[in-house]
Design a protein around this nucleic acid. Structure first.
Lengths: 241, 241
DNA sequence: ATGGCAAAATTGTCGGACAGTCAGATTATC
DNA sequence: GATAATCTGACTGTCCGACAATTTTGCCAT
Protein backbone atom coordinates (compact mmCIF):
# COMPACT_ATOMS: atom_id res chain seq x y z
CA UNK A 1 0.00 0.00 0.00
CA UNK A 2 1.84 3.02 -1.17
CA UNK A 3 -1.04 5.19 -0.06
CA UNK A 4 -2.33 5.88 3.39
CA UNK A 5 -5.98 5.37 4.16
CA UNK A 6 -7.50 8.77 4.06
CA UNK A 7 -6.76 11.02 1.09
CA UNK A 8 -6.96 14.45 2.67
CA UNK A 9 -10.54 15.52 2.36
CA UNK A 10 -11.35 14.25 5.77
CA UNK A 11 -12.73 17.61 6.69
CA UNK A 12 -16.20 16.71 7.95
CA UNK A 13 -16.21 16.73 11.69
CA UNK A 14 -18.25 13.57 11.91
CA UNK A 15 -15.60 11.68 10.01
CA UNK A 16 -12.73 13.04 12.07
CA UNK A 17 -14.55 12.15 15.23
CA UNK A 18 -15.29 8.68 13.94
CA UNK A 19 -11.63 8.24 13.19
CA UNK A 20 -10.54 9.42 16.60
CA UNK A 21 -12.88 7.02 18.33
CA UNK A 22 -11.85 4.25 16.00
CA UNK A 23 -8.23 4.85 16.92
CA UNK A 24 -9.13 4.58 20.57
CA UNK A 25 -10.76 1.25 19.89
CA UNK A 26 -8.12 -0.37 17.73
CA UNK A 27 -5.51 1.07 20.09
CA UNK A 28 -7.30 -0.75 22.86
CA UNK A 29 -7.82 2.41 24.92
CA UNK A 30 -11.44 1.49 24.63
CA UNK A 31 -11.84 -2.22 24.98
CA UNK A 32 -14.59 -4.53 23.89
CA UNK A 33 -17.43 -4.41 26.38
CA UNK A 34 -16.66 -0.93 27.58
CA UNK A 35 -19.70 1.30 27.43
CA UNK A 36 -19.38 4.38 25.29
CA UNK A 37 -20.02 7.72 26.97
CA UNK A 38 -23.43 9.16 26.27
CA UNK A 39 -23.94 11.13 23.11
CA UNK A 40 -24.37 14.35 25.05
CA UNK A 41 -21.17 13.63 26.89
CA UNK A 42 -19.25 12.99 23.71
CA UNK A 43 -20.70 16.12 22.17
CA UNK A 44 -19.39 18.08 25.13
CA UNK A 45 -15.96 16.44 25.03
CA UNK A 46 -15.49 16.98 21.33
CA UNK A 47 -17.11 20.39 21.45
CA UNK A 48 -19.58 19.63 18.70
CA UNK A 49 -23.28 19.20 18.41
CA UNK A 50 -24.95 15.98 19.31
CA UNK A 51 -26.15 15.51 15.75
CA UNK A 52 -22.56 15.48 14.61
CA UNK A 53 -21.67 12.90 17.22
CA UNK A 54 -24.54 10.76 16.09
CA UNK A 55 -23.33 10.72 12.51
CA UNK A 56 -19.89 9.73 13.69
CA UNK A 57 -21.32 6.96 15.82
CA UNK A 58 -23.39 5.57 12.97
CA UNK A 59 -20.18 5.14 11.08
CA UNK A 60 -18.58 3.06 13.79
CA UNK A 61 -21.76 1.18 14.40
CA UNK A 62 -22.00 -0.02 10.83
CA UNK A 63 -18.41 -1.14 10.97
CA UNK A 64 -19.38 -3.28 13.92
CA UNK A 65 -17.04 -1.50 16.27
CA UNK A 66 -19.95 -0.30 18.35
CA UNK A 67 -23.10 -2.16 19.17
CA UNK A 68 -25.51 -2.89 21.92
CA UNK A 69 -26.66 -6.03 23.59
CA UNK A 70 -30.27 -7.07 23.05
CA UNK A 71 -32.60 -4.45 24.42
CA UNK A 72 -29.82 -2.32 25.77
CA UNK A 73 -29.85 1.37 25.16
CA UNK A 74 -26.29 2.29 25.79
CA UNK A 75 -23.78 1.66 23.05
CA UNK A 76 -20.73 -0.35 23.95
CA UNK A 77 -17.53 -1.20 22.21
CA UNK A 78 -17.85 -4.52 20.44
CA UNK A 79 -15.62 -6.69 18.37
CA UNK A 80 -16.93 -6.83 14.85
CA UNK A 81 -18.75 -10.09 14.28
CA UNK A 82 -17.72 -12.14 11.28
CA UNK A 83 -21.25 -12.24 9.99
CA UNK A 84 -21.56 -8.51 9.83
CA UNK A 85 -18.19 -8.03 8.22
CA UNK A 86 -18.57 -10.78 5.69
CA UNK A 87 -21.99 -9.63 4.61
CA UNK A 88 -20.38 -6.34 3.67
CA UNK A 89 -17.74 -8.13 1.68
CA UNK A 90 -20.15 -10.32 -0.17
CA UNK A 91 -22.37 -7.39 -0.99
CA UNK A 92 -19.38 -5.58 -2.39
CA UNK A 93 -18.47 -8.58 -4.47
CA UNK A 94 -22.02 -9.01 -5.66
CA UNK A 95 -22.04 -5.42 -6.84
CA UNK A 96 -18.91 -6.15 -8.80
CA UNK A 97 -20.70 -8.89 -10.69
CA UNK A 98 -18.45 -11.76 -9.75
CA UNK A 99 -18.69 -14.80 -11.93
CA UNK A 100 -19.53 -18.18 -10.59
CA UNK A 101 -16.12 -19.25 -11.79
CA UNK A 102 -14.42 -16.59 -9.69
CA UNK A 103 -16.37 -17.68 -6.67
CA UNK A 104 -15.60 -21.29 -7.37
CA UNK A 105 -11.89 -20.70 -7.68
CA UNK A 106 -11.84 -18.91 -4.37
CA UNK A 107 -13.77 -21.73 -2.76
CA UNK A 108 -11.31 -24.23 -4.17
CA UNK A 109 -8.53 -22.23 -2.60
CA UNK A 110 -10.06 -21.91 0.83
CA UNK A 111 -12.50 -24.67 1.67
CA UNK A 112 -10.19 -27.67 1.26
CA UNK A 113 -7.52 -26.02 3.37
CA UNK A 114 -10.11 -25.20 6.00
CA UNK A 115 -11.23 -28.83 5.98
CA UNK A 116 -7.67 -29.98 6.39
CA UNK A 117 -7.04 -27.81 9.43
CA UNK A 118 -10.44 -28.72 10.78
CA UNK A 119 -9.43 -32.36 10.74
CA UNK A 120 -6.29 -31.51 12.65
CA UNK A 121 -7.79 -29.27 15.25
CA UNK A 122 -11.54 -29.67 15.54
CA UNK A 123 -12.95 -29.81 19.04
CA UNK A 124 -15.74 -32.13 20.01
CA UNK A 125 -18.22 -29.30 20.06
CA UNK A 126 -17.22 -28.21 16.59
CA UNK A 127 -17.61 -31.75 15.40
CA UNK A 128 -21.12 -31.77 16.74
CA UNK A 129 -21.90 -28.58 14.87
CA UNK A 130 -20.85 -30.34 11.71
CA UNK A 131 -23.23 -33.14 12.57
CA UNK A 132 -26.06 -30.73 13.19
CA UNK A 133 -25.59 -29.03 9.86
CA UNK A 134 -25.58 -32.39 8.13
CA UNK A 135 -28.70 -33.44 9.95
CA UNK A 136 -30.39 -30.23 8.97
CA UNK A 137 -29.51 -30.85 5.36
CA UNK A 138 -31.03 -34.29 5.40
CA UNK A 139 -34.10 -33.11 7.18
CA UNK A 140 -34.60 -30.09 4.96
CA UNK A 141 -34.13 -32.06 1.81
CA UNK A 142 -37.66 -31.25 0.75
CA UNK A 143 -37.36 -27.51 1.25
CA UNK A 144 -34.78 -26.02 -1.07
CA UNK A 145 -34.16 -22.93 1.02
CA UNK A 146 -33.60 -25.01 4.12
CA UNK A 147 -31.23 -27.29 2.27
CA UNK A 148 -29.22 -24.41 0.91
CA UNK A 149 -29.02 -22.87 4.31
CA UNK A 150 -27.83 -26.15 5.75
CA UNK A 151 -25.09 -26.42 3.16
CA UNK A 152 -23.89 -22.97 4.07
CA UNK A 153 -23.97 -23.92 7.72
CA UNK A 154 -21.87 -26.94 6.95
CA UNK A 155 -19.19 -24.86 5.29
CA UNK A 156 -19.31 -22.39 8.12
CA UNK A 157 -18.93 -25.18 10.64
CA UNK A 158 -15.91 -26.56 8.81
CA UNK A 159 -14.29 -23.15 8.67
CA UNK A 160 -14.98 -22.59 12.34
CA UNK A 161 -13.50 -25.96 13.17
CA UNK A 162 -10.33 -25.00 11.35
CA UNK A 163 -9.47 -22.92 14.35
CA UNK A 164 -8.30 -20.19 12.04
CA UNK A 165 -10.18 -16.93 12.25
CA UNK A 166 -8.65 -15.58 9.09
CA UNK A 167 -9.73 -18.56 7.07
CA UNK A 168 -13.13 -18.46 8.69
CA UNK A 169 -13.61 -14.80 7.89
CA UNK A 170 -12.34 -15.30 4.36
CA UNK A 171 -14.73 -18.14 3.85
CA UNK A 172 -17.84 -16.47 5.19
CA UNK A 173 -18.50 -14.15 2.26
CA UNK A 174 -18.17 -17.04 -0.14
CA UNK A 175 -21.11 -18.68 1.54
CA UNK A 176 -23.35 -15.75 0.95
CA UNK A 177 -22.27 -15.47 -2.65
CA UNK A 178 -22.84 -19.15 -3.17
CA UNK A 179 -26.41 -19.03 -2.06
CA UNK A 180 -28.16 -18.03 -5.28
CA UNK A 181 -26.15 -20.39 -7.44
CA UNK A 182 -26.54 -23.21 -4.98
CA UNK A 183 -30.26 -22.68 -4.83
CA UNK A 184 -30.54 -23.11 -8.55
CA UNK A 185 -28.30 -26.14 -8.53
CA UNK A 186 -30.24 -27.93 -5.84
CA UNK A 187 -33.46 -27.06 -7.53
CA UNK A 188 -32.50 -28.05 -11.04
CA UNK A 189 -30.04 -30.88 -10.66
CA UNK A 190 -31.81 -33.95 -9.36
CA UNK A 191 -28.78 -35.84 -8.13
CA UNK A 192 -27.34 -32.81 -6.34
CA UNK A 193 -28.90 -33.48 -2.97
CA UNK A 194 -27.63 -36.99 -2.83
CA UNK A 195 -24.13 -36.05 -3.88
CA UNK A 196 -23.96 -33.26 -1.36
CA UNK A 197 -25.17 -35.49 1.40
CA UNK A 198 -22.63 -38.09 0.47
CA UNK A 199 -19.78 -35.60 0.29
CA UNK A 200 -20.70 -34.08 3.62
CA UNK A 201 -20.69 -37.51 5.18
CA UNK A 202 -17.22 -38.29 3.91
CA UNK A 203 -15.82 -34.92 4.87
CA UNK A 204 -17.32 -35.03 8.32
CA UNK A 205 -16.04 -38.52 8.78
CA UNK A 206 -12.52 -37.56 7.80
CA UNK A 207 -12.63 -34.59 10.14
CA UNK A 208 -13.95 -36.77 12.90
CA UNK A 209 -11.12 -39.25 12.53
CA UNK A 210 -8.58 -36.50 12.11
CA UNK A 211 -7.56 -37.60 8.65
CA UNK A 212 -6.56 -34.22 7.33
CA UNK A 213 -5.50 -35.37 3.89
CA UNK A 214 -8.76 -37.13 3.31
CA UNK A 215 -10.73 -34.20 4.61
CA UNK A 216 -8.97 -31.96 2.19
CA UNK A 217 -9.34 -34.32 -0.72
CA UNK A 218 -13.02 -34.91 -0.16
CA UNK A 219 -13.69 -31.26 0.22
CA UNK A 220 -11.95 -30.68 -3.07
CA UNK A 221 -14.15 -33.20 -4.78
CA UNK A 222 -17.15 -31.67 -3.11
CA UNK A 223 -16.35 -28.24 -4.44
CA UNK A 224 -15.57 -29.63 -7.87
CA UNK A 225 -19.02 -31.12 -7.81
CA UNK A 226 -20.52 -27.71 -7.36
CA UNK A 227 -18.90 -26.59 -10.53
CA UNK A 228 -20.24 -29.52 -12.42
CA UNK A 229 -23.65 -28.91 -10.92
CA UNK A 230 -23.53 -25.32 -11.95
CA UNK A 231 -22.54 -26.20 -15.49
CA UNK A 232 -25.36 -28.66 -15.77
CA UNK A 233 -27.83 -26.25 -14.31
CA UNK A 234 -26.79 -23.34 -16.51
CA UNK A 235 -26.71 -25.35 -19.68
CA UNK A 236 -23.10 -26.35 -19.94
CA UNK A 237 -21.44 -23.11 -21.06
CA UNK A 238 -20.82 -21.43 -17.74
CA UNK A 239 -21.10 -17.66 -17.35
CA UNK A 240 -23.19 -17.69 -14.21
CA UNK A 241 -24.90 -14.98 -12.20
CA UNK B 1 -27.59 -19.63 7.45
CA UNK B 2 -30.80 -20.66 9.08
CA UNK B 3 -31.59 -17.04 9.85
CA UNK B 4 -32.70 -14.28 7.55
CA UNK B 5 -30.90 -10.99 7.56
CA UNK B 6 -32.95 -8.86 9.85
CA UNK B 7 -33.45 -10.24 13.35
CA UNK B 8 -36.33 -8.04 14.51
CA UNK B 9 -34.79 -5.10 16.27
CA UNK B 10 -34.28 -3.15 13.10
CA UNK B 11 -36.66 -0.52 14.31
CA UNK B 12 -34.68 2.69 14.20
CA UNK B 13 -35.84 4.68 11.24
CA UNK B 14 -32.35 5.50 10.09
CA UNK B 15 -31.54 1.83 9.80
CA UNK B 16 -34.71 0.98 7.96
CA UNK B 17 -34.08 3.79 5.55
CA UNK B 18 -30.52 2.68 5.07
CA UNK B 19 -31.76 -0.79 4.28
CA UNK B 20 -34.32 0.41 1.81
CA UNK B 21 -31.76 2.47 -0.06
CA UNK B 22 -29.32 -0.40 0.08
CA UNK B 23 -31.91 -2.65 -1.49
CA UNK B 24 -32.37 -0.14 -4.26
CA UNK B 25 -28.66 -0.19 -4.88
CA UNK B 26 -28.03 -3.93 -4.81
CA UNK B 27 -31.22 -4.37 -6.78
CA UNK B 28 -29.73 -2.07 -9.37
CA UNK B 29 -32.65 0.37 -9.26
CA UNK B 30 -29.98 2.86 -8.35
CA UNK B 31 -26.91 2.19 -10.39
CA UNK B 32 -23.33 3.14 -9.81
CA UNK B 33 -22.75 6.70 -10.84
CA UNK B 34 -26.31 7.78 -10.30
CA UNK B 35 -26.54 10.83 -8.09
CA UNK B 36 -28.52 10.40 -4.91
CA UNK B 37 -31.44 12.76 -4.38
CA UNK B 38 -30.68 15.60 -2.03
CA UNK B 39 -31.05 15.04 1.67
CA UNK B 40 -34.04 17.32 1.84
CA UNK B 41 -35.62 15.44 -1.00
CA UNK B 42 -35.06 12.08 0.63
CA UNK B 43 -36.41 13.44 3.89
CA UNK B 44 -39.56 14.45 2.10
CA UNK B 45 -39.90 11.15 0.28
CA UNK B 46 -39.41 9.05 3.37
CA UNK B 47 -41.41 11.44 5.49
CA UNK B 48 -38.71 11.86 8.11
CA UNK B 49 -36.42 14.56 9.23
CA UNK B 50 -33.25 15.40 7.44
CA UNK B 51 -31.19 14.41 10.47
CA UNK B 52 -32.60 10.94 10.24
CA UNK B 53 -31.77 10.75 6.56
CA UNK B 54 -28.26 11.87 7.29
CA UNK B 55 -27.71 9.06 9.77
CA UNK B 56 -28.98 6.59 7.23
CA UNK B 57 -26.70 8.00 4.60
CA UNK B 58 -23.65 7.82 6.82
CA UNK B 59 -24.32 4.13 7.14
CA UNK B 60 -24.29 3.57 3.41
CA UNK B 61 -21.36 5.87 2.96
CA UNK B 62 -19.18 3.86 5.30
CA UNK B 63 -20.16 0.69 3.51
CA UNK B 64 -18.83 2.29 0.38
CA UNK B 65 -22.17 2.18 -1.39
CA UNK B 66 -22.30 5.93 -1.52
CA UNK B 67 -19.50 8.35 -2.12
CA UNK B 68 -18.55 11.44 -3.97
CA UNK B 69 -15.87 12.31 -6.43
CA UNK B 70 -13.20 14.73 -5.39
CA UNK B 71 -14.63 18.10 -4.55
CA UNK B 72 -18.14 17.10 -5.34
CA UNK B 73 -20.94 17.94 -3.05
CA UNK B 74 -23.62 15.55 -4.04
CA UNK B 75 -23.44 11.95 -3.10
CA UNK B 76 -23.64 9.37 -5.81
CA UNK B 77 -24.00 5.64 -5.83
CA UNK B 78 -20.63 3.95 -5.96
CA UNK B 79 -19.41 0.42 -6.07
CA UNK B 80 -17.53 -0.37 -2.90
CA UNK B 81 -13.82 -0.25 -3.56
CA UNK B 82 -11.81 -3.26 -2.49
CA UNK B 83 -9.48 -1.11 -0.43
CA UNK B 84 -12.26 0.24 1.69
CA UNK B 85 -13.87 -3.12 2.22
CA UNK B 86 -10.70 -4.97 2.97
CA UNK B 87 -9.51 -2.41 5.47
CA UNK B 88 -12.68 -3.09 7.39
CA UNK B 89 -12.03 -6.80 7.31
CA UNK B 90 -8.46 -6.52 8.43
CA UNK B 91 -9.40 -4.21 11.24
CA UNK B 92 -11.97 -6.71 12.36
CA UNK B 93 -9.42 -9.47 12.28
CA UNK B 94 -6.88 -7.37 14.11
CA UNK B 95 -9.38 -6.78 16.87
CA UNK B 96 -9.82 -10.50 17.14
CA UNK B 97 -6.13 -10.89 17.83
CA UNK B 98 -5.27 -13.14 14.98
CA UNK B 99 -2.06 -15.05 15.29
CA UNK B 100 0.70 -14.80 12.77
CA UNK B 101 0.16 -18.48 12.16
CA UNK B 102 -3.48 -17.93 11.29
CA UNK B 103 -2.54 -15.21 8.90
CA UNK B 104 0.18 -17.33 7.41
CA UNK B 105 -2.10 -20.30 6.83
CA UNK B 106 -4.57 -18.09 5.03
CA UNK B 107 -1.81 -16.63 2.91
CA UNK B 108 -0.64 -20.12 2.03
CA UNK B 109 -4.15 -20.92 0.91
CA UNK B 110 -4.68 -17.87 -1.23
CA UNK B 111 -1.47 -16.36 -2.55
CA UNK B 112 -0.12 -19.38 -4.43
CA UNK B 113 -3.44 -19.93 -6.12
CA UNK B 114 -3.58 -16.28 -7.05
CA UNK B 115 -0.11 -16.55 -8.51
CA UNK B 116 -1.12 -19.55 -10.51
CA UNK B 117 -4.11 -17.86 -12.07
CA UNK B 118 -2.05 -14.74 -12.59
CA UNK B 119 0.36 -16.74 -14.69
CA UNK B 120 -2.51 -18.02 -16.75
CA UNK B 121 -4.34 -14.79 -17.25
CA UNK B 122 -2.18 -11.75 -16.56
CA UNK B 123 -2.45 -8.90 -19.02
CA UNK B 124 0.56 -6.93 -20.13
CA UNK B 125 -0.44 -3.99 -18.00
CA UNK B 126 -0.77 -6.20 -14.95
CA UNK B 127 2.62 -7.63 -15.65
CA UNK B 128 4.03 -4.15 -15.66
CA UNK B 129 2.45 -3.44 -12.32
CA UNK B 130 4.27 -6.43 -10.96
CA UNK B 131 7.48 -4.99 -12.34
CA UNK B 132 6.81 -1.63 -10.77
CA UNK B 133 6.23 -3.14 -7.37
CA UNK B 134 9.46 -5.09 -7.66
CA UNK B 135 11.35 -2.00 -8.72
CA UNK B 136 9.94 -0.11 -5.79
CA UNK B 137 11.07 -2.84 -3.47
CA UNK B 138 14.61 -2.71 -4.76
CA UNK B 139 14.69 1.05 -4.65
CA UNK B 140 13.19 1.29 -1.20
CA UNK B 141 15.51 -1.30 0.20
CA UNK B 142 17.00 1.25 2.54
CA UNK B 143 13.72 2.44 3.93
CA UNK B 144 11.88 -0.32 5.78
CA UNK B 145 8.45 1.23 5.45
CA UNK B 146 8.88 1.67 1.72
CA UNK B 147 10.07 -1.88 1.34
CA UNK B 148 7.15 -3.26 3.29
CA UNK B 149 4.75 -1.20 1.27
CA UNK B 150 6.34 -2.49 -1.93
CA UNK B 151 5.93 -6.08 -0.80
CA UNK B 152 2.29 -5.47 -0.16
CA UNK B 153 1.96 -3.89 -3.56
CA UNK B 154 3.54 -6.92 -5.11
CA UNK B 155 1.01 -9.23 -3.54
CA UNK B 156 -1.78 -6.92 -4.55
CA UNK B 157 -0.51 -6.86 -8.10
CA UNK B 158 -0.38 -10.64 -8.23
CA UNK B 159 -3.91 -10.92 -6.90
CA UNK B 160 -5.12 -8.33 -9.37
CA UNK B 161 -3.42 -10.19 -12.20
CA UNK B 162 -5.24 -13.34 -11.19
CA UNK B 163 -8.28 -11.84 -12.85
CA UNK B 164 -10.38 -13.07 -9.96
CA UNK B 165 -12.09 -10.42 -7.93
CA UNK B 166 -13.01 -12.80 -5.16
CA UNK B 167 -9.44 -13.90 -4.69
CA UNK B 168 -8.27 -10.32 -4.92
CA UNK B 169 -10.70 -9.17 -2.30
CA UNK B 170 -9.89 -12.12 -0.07
CA UNK B 171 -6.23 -11.38 -0.35
CA UNK B 172 -6.37 -7.67 0.35
CA UNK B 173 -6.99 -7.86 4.09
CA UNK B 174 -4.12 -10.27 4.48
CA UNK B 175 -1.81 -7.60 3.19
CA UNK B 176 -2.82 -5.16 5.82
CA UNK B 177 -2.52 -7.75 8.53
CA UNK B 178 0.89 -8.75 7.30
CA UNK B 179 2.29 -5.27 7.56
CA UNK B 180 3.38 -5.18 11.19
CA UNK B 181 4.90 -8.63 11.13
CA UNK B 182 6.62 -7.98 7.84
CA UNK B 183 8.05 -4.74 9.12
CA UNK B 184 9.68 -6.53 12.00
CA UNK B 185 10.94 -9.29 9.77
CA UNK B 186 12.54 -6.95 7.28
CA UNK B 187 14.02 -4.95 10.08
CA UNK B 188 15.39 -7.79 12.12
CA UNK B 189 16.28 -10.49 9.65
CA UNK B 190 19.27 -9.40 7.57
CA UNK B 191 18.85 -11.82 4.72
CA UNK B 192 15.14 -11.09 4.37
CA UNK B 193 15.45 -8.36 1.78
CA UNK B 194 17.57 -10.45 -0.49
CA UNK B 195 15.34 -13.47 -0.24
CA UNK B 196 12.23 -11.45 -0.92
CA UNK B 197 13.79 -9.80 -3.92
CA UNK B 198 14.85 -13.16 -5.24
CA UNK B 199 11.45 -14.72 -4.71
CA UNK B 200 9.68 -11.82 -6.36
CA UNK B 201 11.96 -12.16 -9.36
CA UNK B 202 11.19 -15.83 -9.77
CA UNK B 203 7.47 -15.38 -9.27
CA UNK B 204 7.28 -12.46 -11.67
CA UNK B 205 9.29 -14.40 -14.18
CA UNK B 206 7.02 -17.40 -13.97
CA UNK B 207 3.98 -15.19 -14.35
CA UNK B 208 5.55 -13.42 -17.27
CA UNK B 209 6.20 -16.69 -19.08
CA UNK B 210 2.83 -18.05 -18.12
CA UNK B 211 4.25 -20.97 -16.21
CA UNK B 212 1.42 -21.35 -13.75
CA UNK B 213 2.85 -24.30 -11.87
CA UNK B 214 6.11 -22.55 -11.28
CA UNK B 215 4.39 -19.36 -10.26
CA UNK B 216 2.41 -21.27 -7.72
CA UNK B 217 5.39 -23.21 -6.43
CA UNK B 218 7.59 -20.15 -6.06
CA UNK B 219 4.87 -18.26 -4.33
CA UNK B 220 4.51 -21.12 -1.91
CA UNK B 221 8.18 -21.02 -1.13
CA UNK B 222 8.00 -17.29 -0.79
CA UNK B 223 5.23 -17.50 1.77
CA UNK B 224 7.01 -20.29 3.61
CA UNK B 225 9.95 -17.97 3.87
CA UNK B 226 7.85 -15.44 5.67
CA UNK B 227 7.09 -17.98 8.30
CA UNK B 228 10.73 -18.80 8.77
CA UNK B 229 11.52 -15.11 8.90
CA UNK B 230 8.88 -14.58 11.50
CA UNK B 231 10.16 -17.42 13.60
CA UNK B 232 13.68 -16.10 13.47
CA UNK B 233 12.57 -12.60 14.25
CA UNK B 234 10.38 -13.60 17.16
CA UNK B 235 12.87 -15.94 18.71
CA UNK B 236 11.86 -19.29 17.32
CA UNK B 237 8.70 -20.06 19.29
CA UNK B 238 6.06 -18.24 17.30
CA UNK B 239 3.11 -16.48 18.95
CA UNK B 240 3.12 -13.34 16.90
CA UNK B 241 1.24 -10.04 17.19
C1' DA C 1 -20.90 27.36 -28.24
C1' DT C 2 -18.25 29.69 -24.46
C1' DG C 3 -17.12 32.03 -20.53
C1' DG C 4 -18.57 34.41 -16.60
C1' DC C 5 -21.71 35.73 -12.96
C1' DA C 6 -25.54 35.91 -9.82
C1' DA C 7 -29.21 33.05 -7.85
C1' DA C 8 -30.79 28.72 -6.10
C1' DA C 9 -29.76 24.49 -4.05
C1' DT C 10 -27.18 21.51 -1.02
C1' DT C 11 -24.25 20.06 2.62
C1' DG C 12 -22.18 20.47 7.28
C1' DT C 13 -23.11 22.02 11.67
C1' DC C 14 -25.54 24.11 15.32
C1' DG C 15 -29.13 24.94 18.96
C1' DG C 16 -33.09 23.42 21.16
C1' DA C 17 -37.09 20.29 22.06
C1' DC C 18 -39.87 16.19 23.21
C1' DA C 19 -41.61 11.48 23.63
C1' DG C 20 -40.33 6.87 24.87
C1' DT C 21 -37.53 3.91 27.65
C1' DC C 22 -34.14 1.64 30.42
C1' DA C 23 -31.76 1.82 35.09
C1' DG C 24 -31.56 2.87 39.57
C1' DA C 25 -33.43 4.89 43.74
C1' DT C 26 -37.61 5.18 46.56
C1' DT C 27 -41.52 3.82 48.57
C1' DA C 28 -45.44 0.79 49.43
C1' DT C 29 -46.89 -4.05 50.42
C1' DC C 30 -46.97 -8.69 52.32
C1' DG D 1 -37.03 -7.98 55.88
C1' DA D 2 -37.93 -9.11 51.24
C1' DT D 3 -40.36 -8.07 47.30
C1' DA D 4 -43.31 -5.43 44.32
C1' DA D 5 -44.88 -1.03 42.59
C1' DT D 6 -43.34 3.79 41.54
C1' DC D 7 -40.90 7.69 40.82
C1' DT D 8 -36.69 9.99 38.84
C1' DG D 9 -33.19 10.86 35.82
C1' DA D 10 -30.37 9.93 32.11
C1' DC D 11 -30.38 8.57 27.25
C1' DT D 12 -31.64 7.70 22.74
C1' DG D 13 -34.48 8.46 18.50
C1' DT D 14 -36.57 11.89 16.04
C1' DC D 15 -38.04 16.44 14.83
C1' DC D 16 -37.86 21.64 13.84
C1' DG D 17 -35.62 25.50 12.46
C1' DA D 18 -31.45 28.10 11.13
C1' DC D 19 -27.05 29.62 8.94
C1' DA D 20 -22.45 29.75 6.69
C1' DA D 21 -19.79 27.79 3.02
C1' DT D 22 -19.69 25.93 -1.31
C1' DT D 23 -21.51 23.77 -5.41
C1' DT D 24 -24.68 23.73 -9.12
C1' DT D 25 -27.53 25.91 -12.16
C1' DG D 26 -29.66 29.24 -15.04
C1' DC D 27 -28.91 33.28 -17.57
C1' DC D 28 -26.52 36.79 -20.08
C1' DA D 29 -23.01 38.71 -22.94
C1' DT D 30 -19.60 37.56 -26.13
Amino acid sequence: MSDLFLPLDDHPAYRQIANVIEQRIVGRSLRAGDPLPSEADLARQFGVNRSTIREAIRELETHGLLGRMRGEKRLRVTRPEPRRVSSGVSRALALHDVTFLELWEAMMAIEPVAAQYAAERRSTAQLQNLGHARARFKRGAADTAAAVSAVMDFFTAVAAASGNQVLALSQAPLNLLLEPALTRIIDCVPQARMRIQDAQARIADAIKHRRSDQARAWMEKHIRDFRRGHEIESGGSGSGR
